[in-house]
C-alpha cells in the first residue's frame, strides 16, 4: 500500500515536471512552426471524418430518444433547443474528447513510445535538436487548439443530425429549426463549454506525449504507452468535465 502511494506521488511529480517543462519550452525560441502546422493537420483535419460521423449520430440519436418523453408533455417544439443545449453544453465536448483520446492520445503515445525505444529521440538529442520542443510542444499545442475546433464542428454536425431526427417524425424547415436552436442558446451555454475543451485538448496531448516520451526500452512498452494514454486521458476528461460543470454552476 505504501509503495502504491509512493508510486502515485512519484507519477504526479514527474507529470508536473513534464508539464512545467512544456510551459518553459513553449515560450522559448526557436519555434517549430512547420511541425506545429503539420500536427494541426494530422490531429485536426484527419480527425474530421470520425468527429463528423460521431457528431451526426449523437445529434440524431439524442433527438430520437428525447422525442417520446417530450411528446408526453406536448413539448415537441422544445426538441431543437433541448438537443442543441445538450450537445453544446455536454455531449459534444465530452464524446468528441473521448473519441480524440482514443485516436490522438493513443497515437501520440505509440508514436513517441516507438521513437523512444528505437533511439530516434536520442538521435535528435545527439544532433543537438531539442526533441521535447520538436515532438512534445508541437503536439500539445496542436491538440489544445484543434480539440476545441473539432468540438465546434461536432456541435454543428450534431445539430444537423438533430434536424434530420426531428424531420423523421415531423416537418420543420432548416431555417425554422436553426432559429429555434439559437433562441434557446445563450452566451453562457457556449463559452464555458468551449473553455473546457481547451483543457481537454491540453490533457489529451500532454498525457499522450508523457506516456510516449517516458516509455521504457522494449517494444512491449510501446503498447503499454498507447493503452495507458487512452485510459488516463479518458479518465482525466471526466474529471475535468466534473470540475468544469461545478465551476460553471458556481460562477454563472
Amino acid at each position: 500500500m505504501i509503495i502504491y502511494f509512493k508510486n502515485v506521488f512519484n507519477d504526479v511529480g514527474t507529470v508536473t515536471e513534464f508539464a512545467s517543462k512544456f510551459f518553459k519550452e513553449v515560450f522559448t525560441p526557436p519555434y517549430e512552426f512547420k511541425e506545429f502546422i503539420k500536427q494541426c493537420y494530422v490531429i485536426g483535419y484527419k480527425s474530421l471524418p470520425l468527429v463528423a460521423i460521431t457528431g451526426f449520430i449523437m445529434g440524431l440519436v439524442l433527438t430520437l430518444q428525447s422525442r417520446p418523453t417530450l411528446a408526453k408533455f406536448g413539448a415537441e417544439s422544445w426538441l431543437p433547443g433541448m438537443v442543441a443545449l445538450s450537445l453544446i453544453r455536454e455531449i459534444a465536448p465530452v464524446i468528441t474528447a473521448l473519441i480524440c483520446a482514443g485516436k490522438i492520445s493513443s497515437g501520440i503515445g505509440a508514436e513517441l513510445g516507438s521513437m523512444k525505444v528505437t533511439e530516434q529521440i536520442d538521435a535528435m538529442e545527439v544532433a543537438a535538436i531539442n526533441p521535447f520542443k520538436y515532438l512534445v510542444v508541437t503536439r500539445i499545442l496542436a491538440t489544445t487548439l484543434m480539440i476545441p475546433l473539432l468540438v465546434i464542428f461536432a456541435d454543428g454536425i450534431g445539430i444537423l443530425g438533430g434536424f434530420i431526427g426531428v424531420n423523421m417524425h415531423g416537418d420543420i424547415t432548416l431555417v425554422r429549426y436553426i432559429s429555434k436552436v439559437f433562441e434557446s442558446l445563450s452566451f453562457l451555454d457556449i463559452v464555458p463549454a468551449t473553455i473546457k475543451t481547451f483543457f481537454f485538448g491540453f490533457f489529451i496531448g500532454m498525457i499522450g506525449c508523457y506516456k510516449g516520451f517516458t516509455a521504457e526500452n522494449g517494444t512491449e512498452s510501446v503498447g503499454k504507452a498507447a493503452n495507458s494514454a487512452v485510459v488516463t486521458a479518458s479518465l482525466t476528461i471526466f474529471i475535468i468535465d466534473m470540475l468544469a460543470v461545478q465551476l460553471t454552476d458556481l460562477f454563472f
Binding site: S114, M115, T118, E119, Q120, D122, A123, V126
Partner: peptide, 12 residues
C-alpha cells in the same frame, strides 16, 4: 560529434 546508433535510429 557524430553518433551512429546500433539500430541506425533513422526517423521513420
Amino acid at each position: 560529434i557524430g553518433f551512429l546508433f546500433q539500430n541506425s535510429a533513422l526517423y521513420d
